[in-house]
């Protein structure tokens, strides 16, 4: 078996390469949405929010349940998708904020281990909720969008309707987020809090409100990712949160944690690495390669690709 898993030299290997890149790019965009939630929270409260991936998972189940109900009522896939895209982010945003208020808020001054362990605890709780919601098996997420190649079949290239959906939804969200953080007053307050919470407070910024807003926005992005993931990958399960969360977090670290464009760049790199490794090396080792990259980066350049070398907070 091992002898046959080598490289594939099809007659059109450039086409093949491009197809793999498209797959990697769309996967990367998806991770970017989740990675943004990690990077923003870490940037402000220095917490690896382990529960973020599982929040995303609950978002998927919410979208599935809601989608099923709306589809039964209206019978229109477009209306269903629109409603899912509106309601799921709201659900995830408030759930995320609720967790912050009830769990993390009281631990702001505690040793760093405390909120991290709490986040692992919350992730366990979310997983158990997901287990009761969807069962322990993989659940099919109905393909509301017909999977169709938008490019001519004889070109040998493939760019499908769901690929387009991913780009159409994620690109504006990311651009909007960048503008929001750069130019609104809340965005400025966020950046200020990330740099120095005490100084920000002294400048009259309501730090608690800023943190709550960060959790809201991070949650909403995870909610959007949930819907896109369901429509594109079409299978969800209660254990999906951990792995997706980890990829996304790796992306955030790769790009320089706390850095918004960095998270997007990191996610695209991770998506590409995963796809290329699956196609050219061995799909079974693709996950391991992502983590080898994570460790290498952490060891040699802990500030990531775009991260600035800042003084470590003590």
């Amino acid at each position: 078996m091992t002898g046959l898993t080598g490289l594939v030299f099809a007659s059109a290997d450039t086409q093949f390469f491009i197809n793999i890149c498209i797959t990697g790019l769309t996967t990367g965009f998806l991770y970017a949405l989740i990675a943004l939630g990690y990077t923003m929270v870490y940037g402000i409260v220095e917490l690896i929010n382990f529960a973020h991936g599982d929040l995303f998972m609950l978002g998927c189940f919410f979208a599935l349940t809601l989608g099923g109900a709306v589809m039964a009522l209206t019978g229109s896939p477009m209306a269903t998708i629109a409603l899912m895209l509106l309601a799921t982010p709201v659900f995830c945003a408030f759930l995320n904020m609720l967790v912050d208020l009830t769990v993390y808020k009281a631990l702001r001054t505690a040793p760093k281990l405390a909120p991290l362990v709490s986040a692992i605890g919350v992730s366990f709780v979310f997983m158990n909720i997901g287990l009761f919601w969807g069962g322990s098996q993989d659940v099919n997420f109905p393909g509301l969008i017909e999977e169709r190649n938008l490019l001519a079949e004889d070109s040998g290239l493939q760019f499908t309707t769901t690929d387009l959906l991913v780009i159409l939804v994620t690109a504006p969200v990311m651009i909007g987020l960048t503008i929001f953080v750069k130019s609104t007053s809340l965005g400025k307050a966020m950046r200020a809090t990330a740099q120095n919470p005490v100084a920000a407070q002294l400048m009259g910024i309501n730090v608690n409100r800023v943190i709550a807003a960060t959790f809201l926005i991070g949650g909403a992005l995870a909610g959007i990712a949930s819907v896109i993931y369901g429509l594109k990958i079409k299978t969800i399960g209660y254990q999906m949160g951990f792995q997706n969360g980890l990829y996304a977090f790796t992306a955030a670290v790769l790009g320089g944690i706390g850095n918004i464009p960095g998270a997007v760049l990191g996610a695209i790199v991770i998506g590409m690495v995963y796809s290329l490794a699956s196609a050219y090396i061995d799909a079974r080792w693709a996950t391991a390669m992502v983590f080898v990259i994570l460790i290498t980066i952490l060891v040699f350049r802990p500030t990531g690709l775009l991260g600035a070398r800042t003084r470590e907070k003590v």
């Binding site: 078996m1 046959l4 797959t23 996967t27 299978t235 796809s275 799909a283 079974r284």
Partner: peptide, 18 residues
């Protein structure tokens, strides 16, 4: 060809392209 899949993977798009 014959290949073993990673049963923990969530999707096999790249494999299917191949």
């Amino acid at each position: 060809g014959q290949e073993s899949i990673d049963v923990k993977a969530q999707e096999f798009k790249a494999l299917m392209q191949k």
